[in-house]
């Protein structure tokens, strides 16, 4: 544990930029940090698209495969860092590993930051993350007012930070301050739900009327899936010069439409159920963790207020 004074933040950024192509938060998403020190806000889009681009060339027909660069993500919230970890699991485990994801993720570094002020739409604690969850980070920052406490979470983080000079040892006062901040933030996240229970209830809810009721209101757009830190469905398309992959969404009717005209998920009801089952049942079955990190983006932005938290409570009541 070390301390970085706020005035030295630009130096840290510049120093990280010597090893990585460094991205930081902006209002709309993570973007390369140019000459400014990024404002440490939570962007509308999670950072998944930096490692898993919405549009990515798999290979050109002339045989060229694009090479990935080492990317550093600065100022990643605990929910988003965990989201990347979940994606890493999905892309690298099982009989095949996705080399495009793996190369990008492994060559990158993730510098997380704790959430001193969780939002009412945050529910990361349901998934064991919490406002100061460090899982999936290499380095972790806590804002204690006059500076940041920096913690190395992984060996990669330790190796990196150990050669950065302008760090101070934290005082007892600093640590006490940090404990207060953590306690205050954690106290704001109450009334959790156990994802294991949700998984078990969903085992029996395939035929539930819940899906039809939600489908009445759902617009079947991909806003929630595209803003989700863990949604990862994609399409592969042949363009003029290259085979590319592009994000896709299980909520789109054509997602499963077959050339014969048959569609196994023709109704919004079927597709909504797929999304919820995939996140909270199938992924849990596979990894003992749900495919949700409680970032709240889908809750905040859904144009018709389909609130996932409300749905989860409903599932617990129904099951």
């Amino acid at each position: 544990m070390r301390k970085l004074l706020k005035k030295d933040l630009p130096r840290l950024i510049e120093w990280l930029k010597t090893s990585y192509l460094l991205y930081g938060p902006t209002e709309y998403g993570f973007a390369p940090i140019a000459d400014h020190t990024p404002e440490l806000i939570t962007p509308i889009r999670p950072p998944k698209g930096i490692f898993f681009p919405q549009y990515q060339v798999l290979f050109r027909y002339d045989g060229k495969v694009p090479k990935s660069k080492g990317i550093g993500l600065f100022g990643v919230r605990p929910c988003d860092a965990k989201g990347l970890l979940i994606l890493n699991r999905i892309f690298t485990q099982g009989p095949y590993r996705d080399n495009y994801w793996q190369d990008q993720y492994q060559s990158g570094i993730i510098i997380g930051i704790g959430c001193n002020q969780p939002q009412p739409t945050c529910f990361c604690h349901w998934f064991g993350i919490g406002p100061f969850g460090k899982e999936g980070c290499d380095l972790f920052l806590t804002d204690i007012g006059d500076g940041f406490l920096i913690e190395a979470v992984s060996k990669k983080g330790e190796d990196l930070i150990s050669s950065f000079d302008p760090l101070l040892p934290p005082t007892d006062q600093d640590l006490k301050r940090r404990d207060e901040i953590v306690a205050r933030a954690e106290a704001q996240l109450k009334d959790g739900i156990d994802p294991k229970l949700i998984k078990e209830r969903l085992d029996n809810l395939w035929e539930s009327p819940i899906w039809g009721e939600l489908a009445e209101r759902c617009l079947s757009c991909a806003l929630c899936t595209y803003l989700c830190p863990t949604c990862h469905c994609f399409d592969i398309q042949d363009e003029e010069k290259a085979r590319v992959r592009i994000w896709d969404s299980c909520l789109f009717p054509l997602f499963t439409q077959e050339a014969s005209g048959h569609n196994p998920r023709p109704e919004i009801r079927d597709r909504l159920r797929q999304r919820i089952m995939h996140k909270f049942n199938y992924l849990y079955l596979q990894y003992k963790e749900a495919g949700c990190v409680g970032c709240g983006r889908c809750v905040i932005f859904c144009p018709v207020n389909l609130d996932l938290r409300e749905l989860m409570r409903r599932i617990l009541d129904e099951g």
Partner: peptide, 17 residues
């Protein structure tokens, strides 16, 4: 089923889990 990746990643061809 409609398939794209064929390697269990693209999320399309599942039936239940």
């Amino acid at each position: 089923r409609r398939m794209k990746c064929g390697i269990g990643k693209c999320g399309r061809c599942n039936i239940g889990p």
